[in-house]
Design a protein around this nucleic acid. Sequence first.
DNA 1: GTCGGGGCTGTAAACGATTACAAGAACGAT
DNA 2: ATCGTTCTTGTAATCGTTTACAGCCCCGAC
Lengths: 332, 332
Amino acid sequence: MSRPTIAGVARAAGVSVASVSRVLNGLPATEEMGERVRRAVEELGYVPDSRARSLKVGRTFQLTLAVADVGNPVYVTMMRAVEEVVSAAGYRLVVTTTGPDVVDEVALVRGMARGYADGLVISPLRVDDDLIKSIRECDVPVVVAGNVPSSAGVDTVRANSPKGMLLAVEHLLAKGRRRIAFVNGPVDTVPGGARAKGFADAMKANGLRPVAEVEAVDFTFAAGREAGVELLSGLNGAPLDAIVAANDLLAVGIMHELAARGLVVPDDVAVIGMDDSELAEQVFPPLTSVNLGSAERGRRAAELLLARIEDDSRTPRRIVVQPTLSVRRSTP
Amino acid sequence: MSRPTIAGVARAAGVSVASVSRVLNGLPATEEMGERVRRAVEELGYVPDSRARSLKVGRTFQLTLAVADVGNPVYVTMMRAVEEVVSAAGYRLVVTTTGPDVVDEVALVRGMARGYADGLVISPLRVDDDLIKSIRECDVPVVVAGNVPSSAGVDTVRANSPKGMLLAVEHLLAKGRRRIAFVNGPVDTVPGGARAKGFADAMKANGLRPVAEVEAVDFTFAAGREAGVELLSGLNGAPLDAIVAANDLLAVGIMHELAARGLVVPDDVAVIGMDDSELAEQVFPPLTSVNLGSAERGRRAAELLLARIEDDSRTPRRIVVQPTLSVRRSTP
DNA sequence: GTCGGGGCTGTAAACGATTACAAGAACGAT
DNA sequence: ATCGTTCTTGTAATCGTTTACAGCCCCGAC
């Protein structure tokens, strides 16, 4: 009554287990052998046990994508891209979420050694030495979608935040907006840090000083809204005509707070987000957003992972994908 | 150089593999034994291989959640709820996406027999006899988050769409809107079918006839926008003061098309979505939406799954969770 | 007719854990 | 001193596959 094993199939077909295995894996066998085995398989409804199989062959044909927060629409873009590449290569993709804490990320990477998957793409929110160390020591290949120091010696695919910030700031300038505020996520995160620096540099390069800067508690919509409150009530009458947000969710949160105060986007205040996620085109007005290439990063990360699985001796690569600006109606 | 096995640890500690296993699993052992084993484990950086372990014990301690489209925000709500329950019970959650085709769903369910996970929560978009059959024959417990005929004899947790539609229609009526159109997703899907019937009944119960009905090609934002075009240009001047959409993404797509034609929500046309996903509060104006209890359905589904894993002989349960209405500003 | 070679096929040994069973040690009761 | 418990530890079987190796059969060449 319970699940048939390969031994059961062998018995039913009157052949050896080795032959069953061979037929199932497409190794040479006589026509008759193939027929008998296939019939027995069909009859018993046999399905090979992947645990036993991967124990023996040492591969699971599963790849893992780990992201911090499934609610952030930037990850769905990335997820789709990764999924496409890995499934074309014959792997299943499993997605897990780590949450915002680096200890959970470390635990996840360490856990990969248990043999859950053949490789991991991780997009870490926070990075510390422990995480780097665990990645380097990990027995399965890991590629990082995000920025880690090149000294770490791991495969990475990252965005060019500074360039992205430059696109944002210069777009605003071109539209005549010079009183720019910045809403960032936590600056102790990888994207938060990169964007803080990128924004500061972009402003300086254009001889501007930010009207205000506020740091949201995380990269969520609710945090954006709160940051909007803080920003707008902290102005004390200082003029403001544009806001750059560190991601789309924050931008959207801010837009709500602007609306609540009767300010209209983009006439009174222009808003630019980052990530160019699906959300950017869904909100109203549609959000101008810096496309940091999430889809391409996902694709490249997946390709890198597959290549490393193929050949683990390759020297680590560091790919950076360039941003573009998706102009929509939240800027003039 | 390669990964240490339990045998290596045993050798290093000068004890037997059985003792190592026992210590690691918290079975009784002397203080000294525990100490030696732990030291060897630490020293070698040993991590048990989960494949071997689950081959032997017959459990993977992984649970799978399968959804049609990770881009649909209703699933992130559900995902969060499921995650919470299963991780509290000591399981890892892996999320996979099936796509819109029933054959892929069937393949997924059949594939569960390979031992990837100890159980499955599936939220199928389309259901046919094959799918039901594969669920019943599946060697691991499956619970369906969605509507399947009670004759199927499987655990299900479903929403009460008809009741939800009633809430929507009666809310509009209470606000004085009587010229109501309906935008549905594909009517050959489970939610599409349920909502079509629910809407028709709700209208009839209130003595109303729909101004128009259109069927989008799927449940995405883009499809909503297209459906909006079709709806609005097909009116031929018929008066319209409210639209009910079968989910939030469709509703948002429609709102964009309304805006493009200079119609303002809710003054000219009220819009109601369904699912009450995070998107509903993120768009502008915030979307009134029927909360079909995705979070609770996720939670209940996960609990049902755990219960069935515990005791497979329980008779199948069918839970239905009741809707509520989240009133926001897209209705007057 | 014998021998060599090339395919198929079967037997059995892995893979890395858990666990039933047996054996040994320690200890108290008689 | 002997016996019986109880507690700890080790040996070996087992989970369900894959695959190295050896055996077999058949065929063609000498």
